[in-house]
């Protein structure tokens, strides 16, 4: 099978940034994909493992950060699309 590479970015609009609950949602979603997925706070990195709840939470990304995702694997494109979608939907935190 061909390995895919995919990248995407999205503006973090969540009022308190990538705090505990959004971090858990992002990590859980990332873990549902086979691909290796990295999260970067800039297009040049540094990159952290998007499947590591400890690292994602420690990144403490504030509101208005441009979040970058890069994935490598068979479901790379789906993974990036799903993660960008989660951040765009403000982590489904409406209720």
């Amino acid at each position: 099978m061909m390995n895919g590479h995919s990248r995407g970015s999205v503006l973090l609009r969540h009022e308190v940034g990538l705090h505990a609950r959004p971090s858990v949602k992002l990590t859980k979603l990332a873990k549902s994909f086979q691909s290796r997925i990295d999260l970067g706070l800039s297009a040049e990195g540094p990159w952290i493992d998007a499947k590591s709840i400890v690292k994602v939470m420690a990144a403490k990304a504030p509101k208005d950060t441009e979040l970058h995702f890069r994935a490598e694997g068979d479901d790379a494109a789906d993974a990036v699309a799903a993660l960008v979608g989660l951040v765009e939907r403000d982590f489904d935190d409406g209720d």
């Binding site: 858990v24 990590t27 859980k28 873990k31 549902s32 499947k51 590591s52 709840i53 400890v54 420690a58």
Partner: peptide
């Protein structure tokens, strides 16, 4: 507990769950 729960929710092994919980260190 939150770290361990997050790791466990992804179907990780017991050893991975413990490692993730113990990876956490005060910033």
């Amino acid at each position: 507990a939150v770290m361990a729960g997050t790791e466990a929710s992804a179907g990780s092994t017991l050893e991975e769950v413990r490692r993730t919980a113990e990876e956490l260190r005060p910033a």
